[in-house]
Design a protein around this nucleic acid. Sequence first.
DNA 1: AATGCGAACAACCGCCTGCAT
DNA 2: GATGCAGGCGGTTGTTCGCAT
Length: 276
Amino acid sequence: MERQSDGTCIKKGPWTAEEDEILMNYVKKYGPRGWSSIRSMGLLPRTGKSCRLRWVNKLRPNLKTGCKFSAEEERAVIELQAEFGNKWAKIARHLPGRTDNDVKNFWSARRKRLDRISQTQENKGKDPVPHEMPMVEVLPANFVQGSSSHEDQFKRSLFMEEFQMVSLPDLIKPDLLNLETGLPVLDIEPIRMIPLDLPILPECQDLALESFDYNCVGMFNNQSESKPKSLTKIPSAGSHAELGNKENDAAPDCFFDEFPTDMFDYLEPLPSSLEW
DNA sequence: AATGCGAACAACCGCCTGCAT
DNA sequence: GATGCAGGCGGTTGTTCGCAT
């Protein structure tokens, strides 16, 4: 408890279940506003700011608490950060169930990771770019998935033609690791990565490539068997507003765990599809 | 089992903005 | 227009947890 000049006390630190309940009841009754009156009414010895923050970050309905960022959410954050900068609240508005605090924490964790990688590489006096990065396939942004209309099939066939194999080191610019200026700025045309040799998702069966050039993937993870067993696909990031609204996200958390954790960190902005 | 370390999360602080007076 | 206040936001710090050694 911290005593104020007016004699009242302000409580700081972790919230208790009882406090949460009181706050929830207040919001139910009065709505998420007038935070300062919570204290003036004697309901809680917390500042209005603290109450608001607790509501926004923990008590608000439909929050994805305790749930790691999906691959799609990670991508969206990276794209939106490139577009808006550190406007976490703005970015969070595109990610249903995520708060600005979530996004901020995610980003700073990512940044620390990058810092450490950079530091490690500098200490080793090596090229900061890892040489054994897996090859990924970069798909055009206008790819339409999950529909079987003639138009969509046509678009899909176009997409297959545009489909490119790109090795990650080819996408890397040395200055992307310049941590002085922050993180790599991804000029994001939404892109999709298809890691090879991962379990294929049922909804993606029809995306398997019949004419796939398996010779292209021999270097992938130095695996002896270069032919991919399957293809896995991350759903389109085209509409960020839809993120997280799907019941079964096609990119479960465990899926992303299969990736090198810093995979996105090494991506260079792609030329627009017009230049392909 | 103890310890160290990194990641994730929770909460606070200070600044800024918008609005009412 | 000046002032005060509430709320919003970004940065930062503290705490907890899980994992490796």
